[in-house]
Design a protein around this nucleic acid. Structure first.
Lengths: 229, 229
DNA sequence: TTTATTAATGTAGATTTCACACTTACAATA
DNA sequence: TATTGTAAGTGTGAAATCTACATTAATAAA
């Protein structure tokens, strides 16, 4: 019985994470200042190498956890980047993942220690290797996914206002949306719970808080879900 | 200057191709009967290993060409599969690609020699490893891509009838479409050339042949393209 | 009590989608 | 050459969805 494909070449496999967060300033990504060569000191996506007995999804989870302290985060594999010299040190194929996190939840200590920082997506610095491409692709995928699955909620705190949700979608799609039309479309999906509680930060009147109702959503999934904004 | 990330583990990288074709029997995939261990004699996707100085896209092109003799084929990377024991011989991560080919164009000799065969997508045999998953994912992606880009034309001969186009879309989406509505939607895109020539195979009356007008399409791309069938 | 600020809400016109059936052109056959 | 059979080609009206748009409501602060 064969126990190796001896003739084939082996390569390094890396995982790079595009970590999206959202707050009142808009959509952001978490970047890190590399503390090793090459490109030490330059900005980079958060990444690492796949281990021998590790599945790619687990590597992505491990890396995210290392730098943010977070678990149970929405992640999705995006694309494998394989240009020969993309990493000047050694042939490395990198698989990108995107993650959606609630920006208020991560471990501030950790990201400080790692010299990580949040950047508004339009003000991100130049990144090493092909990481800028990865980010652009991730944004595209985020837009697409947002239109077919309500993953946007992953980026918000558990309780949120309609305005926050609206601003999140505006940030993701980078276009203005009509408030009334947006609200009625969201309501027609019937996947939110309107709470009795109000958020009084934003105005005198206060705005109702909502939570995402995952159960109702799962029910609906049997049918199709399309969100056309 | 660093010249290796010495601590990291290396792995084998494979490429597996989901090759779609279309003829009067519907949508098909090209499968191969493995002639090496393990799983010799079982049906499998067409694949191979990534070479040291090769980009993934090129590996996919090389593999497709080896088995079909074709060049200049529409291909797209899909997903990296990394379960630890997906290949029992050795840890192998496989990146899947899908290809769309005009089923009449490939080299019959070649595929015969390689024991390759076309299977209607609903009658495909059980495949080795995780290849059935790969196929299912590829079909999903094909459906999606079809709705946002006119890639369906890649599967047809250069000149085709409206009926062929209709049947292609029905096969991809696996649902019936209304002939009149389909035709008027396609026409409203204004990306086809209607030829004076008719195809007389299918009926006494004969049906007009069309070609895909790539230039007109590229123009339109500046705006958005959505095909909602 | 007045004022300032943001939240909440509905409608009408335009556009798009969908369902649906008859006529036409031609080749084959009698 | 008249008849027949077959798939091609074509348009409309009703329903659903999308879009643009402006006023009132609730509350805290002054």
């Amino acid at each position: 019985m064969l126990n190796s494909y001896s003739s084939a070449d082996k390569v390094l496999l890396a995982v790079d994470c595009i970590i999206f967060g959202f707050d009142s300033d808009g959509l952001k990504i978490l970047l890190i200042q590399r503390d090793f060569e090459p490109e030490k000191g330059k900005w980079s996506l958060i990444g690492g190498f796949l281990k021998r007995d590790e599945v790619l999804d687990d590597a992505a989870i491990r890396i995210l956890n290392t730098y943010t302290g977070l678990n149970d985060i929405y992640m999705e594999q995006l694309y494998a980047y394989s240009e020969i010299d993309r990493d000047p040190v050694e042939r490395t194929i990198s698989v990108s993942y995107f993650a959606l996190i609630n920006i208020e939840n991560h471990n501030e200590e950790l990201i400080k220690n790692y010299h990580a920082e949040w950047f508004p997506i339009n003000e991100a610095p130049h990144l090493i290797f092909d990481h800028n491409d990865m980010v652009q692709n991730a944004i595209k995928r985020l837009r697409y996914k947002t239109s077919i699955k309500p993953i946007g909620f992953e980026l918000l705190p558990e309780k949120f206002t309609m305005r926050q949700l609206l601003e999140l979608y505006e940030a993701i799609l980078s276009k203005e949306l009509d408030k009334r039309n947006f609200i009625s479309k969201i309501n027609s999906l019937e996947i939110l719970n309107k709470l009795d509680e109000k958020d009084m930060q934003s105005s005198r009147k206060g705005s109702y808080l909502y939570t995402f109702n995952k159960e109702k959503y799962e029910e609906k999934l049997l049918n199709d879900f399309v969100l056309n904004l």
